[in-house]
Amino acid sequence: EVHFESHGEEQAMRVVKMLKKRNLTVEVKVENNKWIITAK
């Protein structure tokens, strides 16, 4: 499981795309203006 924190939507979306290319399940949450990305 991979956790990634991002402060910007643009950066977060880039990471999500990259993770999805690896056929991982990606969950995105926004907490306290931080984008929290979890990949399994």
Rank of each mutant, 00 (worst) to 15 (best):
E1W: 14
E1A: 11
E1Y: 13
E1Q: 10
V2T: 07
V2Y: 14
V2I: 13
H3M: 12
H3D: 03
F4K: 03
F4H: 04
E5D: 04
E5I: 15
E5M: 09
E5L: 11
E5T: 12
E5G: 05
E5S: 08
S6L: 15
S6M: 15
S6W: 08
S6I: 15
S6R: 13
H7N: 11
G8S: 15
G8P: 03
G8E: 14
G8D: 15
E9I: 13
E9M: 12
E10D: 09
Q11F: 11
Q11R: 08
Q11I: 10
Q11P: 05
Q11K: 06
A12D: 01
A12L: 09
A12T: 05
M13R: 10
M13H: 04
M13C: 14
M13G: 02
R14I: 09
R14G: 03
R14T: 04
V15S: 01
V15W: 12
V16L: 08
K17I: 15
K17A: 14
K17V: 14
K17G: 08
M18L: 10
M18N: 05
M18Q: 06
M18C: 15
L19V: 01
L19Y: 03
L19I: 01
L19M: 04
L19D: 00
L19G: 01
K20Q: 12
K20P: 00
K20W: 09
K20N: 05
K20D: 02
K21C: 14
K21Y: 09
K21T: 08
R22V: 06
R22H: 11
R22A: 09
N23M: 10
N23L: 10
N23K: 09
N23D: 05
N23S: 07
N23H: 13
L24M: 13
L24A: 03
L24D: 01
L24N: 02
T25V: 12
T25M: 11
V26E: 00
E27S: 12
V28W: 11
V28K: 01
K29C: 13
K29F: 09
V30F: 15
V30T: 05
E31C: 10
E31P: 00
E31T: 05
E31V: 13
N32Y: 06
N32R: 05
N32K: 08
N33F: 09
N33W: 05
K34A: 04
W35A: 00
W35V: 04
I36R: 04
I36A: 02
I36Q: 03
I36E: 01
I36P: 00
I36W: 04
I37K: 00
I37L: 02
T38Q: 03
A39P: 02
A39N: 01
A39E: 01
A39R: 02
A39F: 12
K40E: 04
K40A: 08
K40M: 11
K40G: 05
